[in-house]
Every structure is written in C-alpha cells, then in structure tokens.
Amino acid sequence: MNIVLAAGVVVGFAVIIERLRLPGHARQVGRHSTTCLRVLRDDSLDDAAKETALQNRARELFELLGRLVGGSALALGLPLGGVWLLGRAGVGSFSGTFATLQRIDFLAVTTAVGLLAYVLVQRTRAS
C-alpha cells in the first residue's frame, strides 16, 4: 500500500505543479533575470533609469518567488497531507510512505517513468 500512496504523492505533486503553471513561472524568472542583466549593461541608460527599471523587475521577481514557493509548498503539502489523513484513518502509513519515497529503487523508477511521460507529452504537443 505504501508504494501506491507514494506513487500518488508523486503524481499529485506533478499534476499540481503543472496546474499551477510553476514551470512557466520559473521560465519567467529566467527571462526577468536576463532582462535585468541587459539593463545593468546598457550604457545608454543613466543610473536613475537603471534603478527604476530594476525596481520594477524586482517587484515582479518577488511576486514570482512567492508564487513558486507557495505553489511548491502546496504541491508537496496537499499530497502528503492526503497520505497523512489516510494514515490517520488506518489506510496505509505516513511514515512507511515517506520511507518509500526515499528509496533509491522507487526514485529511479519514478525518474524513468517521469522522463518517458515528459518525452511523450512533448511529442504529442509537437504533433
């Protein structure tokens, strides 16, 4: 039962991460960071213009950071909370499921299946 619950945690985490569009937010962070570097290197801007541009980007970056941190906590907390509730109800074991999530064989299989799913989804979107 612990393997089933652990798989549910992994799938739940992945689904919530995707539903909250956290990968897209992470890409936005990269784009904003690149823009900030361009602003810093732009010799045509004076210090005041650079400061204004960077302050605007900083606000956006902090908002994205909040979304990423909050979304990640939610994506991990909800599935683990569900397992905890099931454990309290006598279905499975929270500590056993947590131990399963840390096993190297479970991690290897999860990584392989996740990579395969990613490749299949990318091929389907490209078609």
Results as ranks from 00 to 15, higher is better:
Met1Lys: 03
Asn2Thr: 11
Asn2Val: 11
Ile3Gln: 04
Leu5Ala: 06
Ala6Ile: 07
Ala6Met: 02
Ala6Tyr: 13
Ala7Leu: 13
Gly8Pro: 01
Gly8Ile: 11
Gly12Thr: 06
Gly12Pro: 07
Gly12Ile: 10
Phe13Ser: 00
Ala14Tyr: 08
Val15Ile: 08
Val15Asn: 01
Ile16Cys: 03
Ile17Met: 12
Ile17Arg: 00
Arg19Tyr: 11
Arg19Met: 10
Arg19Pro: 02
Arg21Thr: 07
Arg21Ile: 02
Leu22Thr: 05
Leu22Phe: 01
Pro23Ala: 02
His25Glu: 12
His25Cys: 00
Ala26Asn: 02
Ala26Asp: 03
Arg27Val: 14
Gln28Cys: 04
Gln28Glu: 13
Gln28Trp: 11
Gly30Glu: 13
His32Tyr: 15
Ser33Trp: 10
Thr34Glu: 15
Thr35Glu: 11
Leu37His: 07
Leu37Met: 15
Leu37Glu: 15
Arg38Thr: 08
Val39His: 05
Arg41Ala: 13
Arg41Val: 04
Arg41Pro: 01
Asp42Thr: 01
Asp42Met: 06
Asp42Ile: 05
Asp43Pro: 00
Asp43Ala: 12
Ser44Asn: 09
Asp46Arg: 00
Ala49Lys: 07
Lys50Thr: 05
Glu51Lys: 08
Thr52Val: 15
Thr52Glu: 15
Thr52Ala: 14
Thr52Met: 10
Ala53Ser: 09
Asn56Val: 13
Arg57His: 14
Ala58Phe: 15
Glu60Ser: 07
Glu60Asp: 12
Glu60Gly: 01
Leu61Met: 12
Leu61Ile: 09
Leu61Asp: 11
Phe62Ala: 11
Phe62Asn: 12
Glu63Lys: 00
Leu64Tyr: 09
Leu64Ile: 13
Arg67Val: 12
Arg67Met: 08
Arg67Asn: 05
Leu68Gly: 03
Val69Asn: 03
Gly71Ser: 01
Ser72Ala: 09
Ser72Gly: 13
Leu74Asn: 06
Leu78Ala: 13
Pro79Gly: 03
Leu80Gly: 02
Gly81Tyr: 07
Gly81Trp: 08
Gly82Phe: 10
Trp84Glu: 07
Trp84Ala: 10
Trp84Leu: 14
Leu85Met: 12
Leu86Thr: 03
Gly87Phe: 07
Gly87Tyr: 06
Arg88Trp: 14
Arg88Leu: 15
Gly90Gln: 05
Gly90Arg: 09
Val91Glu: 10
Gly92Val: 02
Ser93Ile: 06
Ser93Val: 08
Gly96Pro: 03
Thr97Ser: 05
Ala99Trp: 14
Ala99Val: 08
Ala99Tyr: 11
Thr100Ser: 12
Gln102Gly: 03
Arg103Trp: 14
Arg103Phe: 13
Ile104Asp: 04
Ile104Asn: 06
Asp105His: 12
Asp105Phe: 14
Leu107Gln: 14
Leu107Arg: 13
Thr110Leu: 04
Thr111Met: 09
Thr111Ala: 15
Ala112Val: 13
Val113Tyr: 02
Val113Pro: 02
Gly114Tyr: 09
Leu115Glu: 00
Leu115Ser: 07
Leu116Cys: 03
Ala117Cys: 10
Ala117Asn: 00
Val119Lys: 03
Leu120Ser: 00
Leu120Arg: 01
Leu120Thr: 02
Gln122Asn: 03
Arg123Asp: 01
Arg125Cys: 01
Ala126Val: 04
Ser127Met: 11
Ser127Asp: 12
